[in-house]
Amino acid sequence: MDLTLKVWRQKNREDKGGLETYKVTGILGHYSFLEMLDVMNEQLITQGKDPVAFDHDCREGICGTCSLYINGEAHGPDRKVTTCQLHMRMFNDGETIYIEPWRSAAMPVIKDLIVDRSSFDRIQQSGGFVSVNTSGNTQDANALPIPKMNADKAFDVAACIGCGACVATCKNSSAMLFVAAKVSQYAYLPQGQVERKQRVLNMVEQMDKEGFGNCTNTGACEIECPKGISIEYIAKMNREYLSASISSEE
């Protein structure tokens, strides 16, 4: 199939940026979206032009590196996939595709389609862990049974890949689905109990500091989340936060 691509080009953080138009031809349905971009970049390099910079790494939907806002949707038109798992069979011959970076003040564009997601790292650093040393002298792994339901729920939220689609798709640029996933994971596990209250307070504080917006329950994030994490966990985080705020020891 032959396609027209409208791609966001931006030289660096300071540049204003804008859309450029490129044509690609001979794309087959089994190409992944990123392989289609590879073809475009090969063409650009051969023509002596600067290729389009985009983030990508594992290309199997787990590392969370790839992003891309495609035709107005985070990770494109397919559901529960990342851009690297999106295949060209989802598009039609002759179609025009708009490709933009994530847009959020807390995730500024570095170049072209690449954004700076270090705000996510800083939120995790503010409390997304259990304070246990790696001494190797922890108790036996089976000393503390965990009800299967809790373990499964903890897993469901731990599946978050930190890609940022939730932020990109949210009209408020809210990171609450991302933060809720981590807060909930530890809240469901006995190992997370000791720091439970302080964790949610710290992580929410950092989230606000980074400039992410708040949740107004539009639910776009859970639709675009490649790992299908439900907004019910945002409710859980709100509950954790409220309970920590009114009952915190300090």
């Binding site: 922890t138 965990i146 299967k148 373990a151 731990a158």
Partner: peptide, 24 residues
């Protein structure tokens, strides 16, 4: 040291698969 790794990861909150008795 293989056994220690599992103990360590569970202590960190790694959600390993469990059976209905709550054990790994």
């Amino acid at each position: 040291v293989s056994g220690n790794i599992i103990d360590q990861c569970v202590a960190q909150g790694v959600p390993f698969g469990r059976d209905y008795g709550g054990l790994l």
